[in-house]
Design a binder for these strands. Structure first.
Lengths: 214, 214
DNA sequence: GCGGATATAACCAGTTCTGGCTATAGCCGA
DNA sequence: TCGGCTATAGCCAGAACTGGTTATATCCGC
């Protein structure tokens, strides 16, 4: 059984090189390539690779945010961040968001393959097994898996109206608040749920409280 | 047990008069008033009145379309159309869309109460029981209750992408068609499902095929 | 072979949403 | 009492969606 790897990297050259390197290794197979976070978040959950190599610097949504969302959609995937600099803060954030390890882009082909194998074998490339424990420890206290529960009462109310197709204007009328406030609540809801549109928020909402569907 | 009546009518005066007339009648109760179709479609399914008096001429969505949708949401409600002129075509359309009878606005209070009682008792004000059979006959051959099943294969595909939050642009890329075509498909989907936004369409979609919800 | 359904495509004008900022007031817990 | 969270509100720009209309090509069934 081969190890399936997906790559998220905006630079075509880097992406291509990595893909070739992976495919040239017997027990590895590059099953997909993604130029940006949005594309990755839609396709990777369907493709279900075991390993994801993710560039930290992506256009639009950055790699850290992408990992956070991807781990919600496909928790079993092991994500390895790709970075040019060994920036402790960002790498730390990526790990908190759900990444298992990281890889410097200047690494040799051998080191890259080694790192992937390490992750797949249960390690965390950087300082291996010990580091993974560290990672696991803060993942517990952070990530409530889904922040849906963290919505305030008011935000839940607004989300409920969103799900019923109300316009902002109409929600404002119903709740006796201004359009601007509805807008603000919606922005907060999107941030907490890590989504970018009404449809995505509503999908999460409906999956939580199955009941009010005519 | 009183008969609960809701009124959909944009003219405040007419609405008020009808409400007072209904409330002044012992076994009737006006449980809600709605100035337009959108408002009616949202609130009436929750209020669940037995009878709905619906103006044919509403601002925005007209009364006929409103009946069509309302009957999908609350099939047990008996809808009586309110009209100024005895326009055969429109009344016919309203009946096809799901109305049970109609009422001329110039009718006397006695006739109005009589008509509501008639509908509640199983008749169809206009030519009573005989007319109802006629109505029932074309309601069968038309209204497939929910046109969801009438979506073409392509439309189902597009709806599926809509549900996953894809932009029109992205759907176009995925299906290798133009943005304009995606737009056209979406319009057709909305027409068939009788909705006016992505969220409403997606809600119907998800309620049909419970499965792909991360 | 004609009518109907389907799939494709485009133009235009509004409307609505999304995101980045800023800001104030109240409340509660450390 | 300071900091954080919640709820409220506004401005602005750009992106995306909705609806009305028109048009062409294909395929299928009667």
């Amino acid at each position: 059984m081969q190890i399936h790897v997906s790559i998220v990297e905006d630079d075509v050259k880097v992406r291509g090189s990595l893909a070739r390197l992976i495919d040239s290794t017997d027990d590895f197979s590059c099953v997909s390539q993604h130029p940006d976070a949005e594309n990755a978040l839609r396709e990777i959950p369907v493709i279900k690779p075991q390993i994801v190599l993710m560039d930290i610097n992506l256009p639009g949504m950055d790699g850290v945010e992408c990992v956070r969302r991807l781990k919600q959609l496909l928790p079993q995937a092991q994500v390895v961040m790709l970075t040019v600099y060994e920036n402790t803060n960002i790498i730390f954030e990526a790990l908190t968001a759900g990444a298992t390890g990281y890889l410097l882009k200047r690494s040799s082909p051998e080191q890259i393959i080694e790192a992937i194998r390490d992750v797949h074998g249960g390690g965390s490339p950087m300082s291996s097994h010990i580091a993974r424990k560290v990672v696991a420890s803060f993942q517990k206290v952070t990530n409530p898996v889904h922040e849906y529960e963290k919505l305030s009462t008011r935000e839940h109310q607004v989300l409920d109206y969103l799900a019923r197709g109300f316009l902002y204007r109409e929600i404002a009328e119903e709740l006796k608040i201004s359009y601007a406030t509805v807008h603000t609540h919606v922005r907060h809801i999107y941030e907490k749920l890590h989504v970018r549109s009404r449809t995505e928020a509503v999908t999460i909402h409906l999956s939580r409280r199955r009941a009010p569907l005519a």
